[in-house]
Every structure is written in structure tokens, then in C-alpha cells.
Design a protein around this nucleic acid. Sequence first.
DNA 1: TTATTTACTTTGAAAATCAAAGTGCTTTTA
DNA 2: TAAAAGCACTTTGATTTTCAAAGTAAATAA
Lengths: 101, 101
Amino acid sequence: MKIAFDKLDKAFENRVRLQIMSVLSVNSRYDFNSLKELLNITDGNLASHLKGLEKEEYIMVHKSFLGRKPNTNYEATDKGKKAFKDHLDTLEQLIKQQKIN
Amino acid sequence: MKIAFDKLDKAFENRVRLQIMSVLSVNSRYDFNSLKELLNITDGNLASHLKGLEKEEYIMVHKSFLGRKPNTNYEATDKGKKAFKDHLDTLEQLIKQQKIN
DNA sequence: TTATTTACTTTGAAAATCAAAGTGCTTTTA
DNA sequence: TAAAAGCACTTTGATTTTCAAAGTAAATAA
């Protein structure tokens, strides 16, 4: 059996983006600062990875106020959830294949 | 439950190196040209990824002759097999975690 | 009014990735 | 026997990716 490596999504190759998608598929929403603390990266770096996922339409942004403070939340889109699932399914096949041998 | 993303091995982040390790954990040995055809990449590109894995001591090289032609074979080391397994185990945990939610 | 917070954008450097060309050696073909 | 081709690279250089740091704007808190 051959594994379709070409089904692996380049957008999820990077560790940070993999983490973001994991968080956003377990939590329906997650805000910028919590994400930044969780991943322990600079805000600029986080912002650019978020932007990358947004460009692919894998996540979307919700801007609101918590009391008087601005609060930006991120949410995985259906497209993003599907793409992430497909990616993990491919990885799962790969893992299974390895276990047989 | 928290997933240890930091256990993901950077050496296996790249698609080509992931494929190489997959092939070398199913096949005890695989030669340069077959690998090149399988992955459908240029020889220079393959060589540099192989070198990267060799530098980590994840694979080793066997040079021999098939008849009169030189033939270079690659084999995963124990260290490489372990590292690859650990990497896949971490990915598996991530996948499981996603399925619960 | 000065400092701080939030959520960025911009900049630039470093690292990663890749194709293409070059290399040295051998073997096959004309 | 000269030329072409195969093998397994190395080198080069361009492009892309990744990241930290600095800059920004708008608002709030001290």
C-alpha cells in the first residue's frame, strides 16, 4: 500500500501552525494572547502564522471587547477543519502502515 | 491533556525526509536511484536530505557494487528508528486527542 | 500626561529548500 | 578508442520560510 504523501498539507508542516490548528479544533475559540502564551513565541511570529492560516481560509478572526479591552479571537473555519482532518488522516495512515511492518 | 509538541523532531518536519524515513523503516535497505524515482525529486535534492539525516545519525550508507555498477544503499540506524517512532508516537497522540474532541 | 496594553505590520537576518550545473569515476556504446 | 551515459554525489545560487525585533496606532490605566 502506498501512502499519498502529496495529501499532506504544506500549511500544517510547520510546528507552530500545527499547534494553532490543534488548539482551534479542540477549542472553538482562542484569543491572541492566550495563544501567544501557550505557544511561547513572539507576537510578531504568531501574527504571521495566523495570517498564513487566514490566507488559506483555514481560520477566521473575531474582534470584540472584553470590558473595554480589545480582544481578538480565532476560530477554525469548516474548510480549515476539513483540511486539518485530512492532513491528520494521512498521517494516521502513515503511522498505521509503520506499525504493520 | 497536553501534547508535547516539543517532542516533534525537526528532522522529520520536511515532507521528503518524512518519506525517506517511512521507506527506510519498512524496507531495511533502499538504494539511491530507487529512492530518487519513488520520491520524484532531483538527485541533488535527495542527496542533501539524505545528508541531513546522516548528519543526525538517523541513517547510514552502504556502498557496494551490483555487478560492475556502483550501488549506494541507505539504512535507518537504531537511533533513527527510535527517533522516527517517537515522532510518530507524538503525532499519534495528537491525532487521538483530536478524535476525542 | 505618561506609560502600558493589544494586536498587529514592517524590516531584515538567518535558515531551509530546491533545481541546475558541475565533478570524478566507471562503464557502455558506436 | 572515443564519445556518451550512469552513478552519486557537491557546489552554487535563487527562492522561500521562519523568526525576532522594532515600529505603529488606538485605547486605557496610573
